[in-house]
Amino acid sequence: MIEPTDRAFLADLCLQRAGLQVDPEKAYLIDSRIAPVARREGFASPRDFVDALRADPDGRMSWALVEALSQSETDFFRDRRVFVHLVDEVLPALAAAHGGQPVRVWSAACGAGQEIYSLAMMLADAPGTPTATELYASDLSERALEKAQAGLYSQFEIQRGLPARTLVRHFEKQGDSFVLSPRIRQMIRWRRVNLLDDLSRLGQFDLILCRHLLPQLAPGAQALVLAQLQRSLAPGGRLVLGLRDPTGDLVAVDPAFGVYAAPSEAARSAA
């Protein structure tokens, strides 16, 4: 059991590191997430893990903490019609505006990879010539990225949102798990990115997916991340948010599908 003052310290550390909103009153949640991390990192008790964090709040353990408290389950093809709309409408329009140059797509909080892989599989299965794309994916969590890159999912994970036909077409069985084909995995480039850091080194993207992350963040961090993502949009680019995510001052393009544009961009094209 972690003491209330320690929970407040842990919540504050998550806020500082990643803008993550953690309710320090949620003792059960915090206890249940911290115990396995403490064990994995070799601490005798959650208490010792907290002591180590207090002794070195900037160290590697602080990221283990953030990863533990930000993990969230997700499905393949979450809100399926959004993927259909992106592949059928948004990506071809972006490609047309590009004159044949590949469209740069970034899944900015990719977790274990279900979102970007869903898009990759749809593109691979699209009839005719699929839109030329470069697919990038990033997450704050090294562990999530390792899992995503491996493309290895449990029987429970693989059944969430993934149609059986897609499963047999793109996966192989490996023990009790299912592994995505190298062909699809090789379509993605991975990188660890904290969306609170300077993102300019990543370049600009025509399509950025950042779905269901913002509600996990504190209000200040939400605004900061939205502003950062807008700056990472190429001219004419589109930002895709979760259907109930906060949208700040973004301009709705296809709000029924969570598709938005930067406000400066809308002003430019209106002029």
Binding site: Q155, Q159, P163, A164, R165, L167, V168, F171, E172, K173
Partner: peptide, 19 residues
């Protein structure tokens, strides 16, 4: 949970498959 058997079920006319 064998993928070849799942394919067989789909090819026989199943619309979906739950393990």
């Amino acid at each position: 949970t064998d993928l070849d058997r799942i394919s067989e079920a789909l090819d026989t006319g199943a619309d979906e498959y739950i393990m």
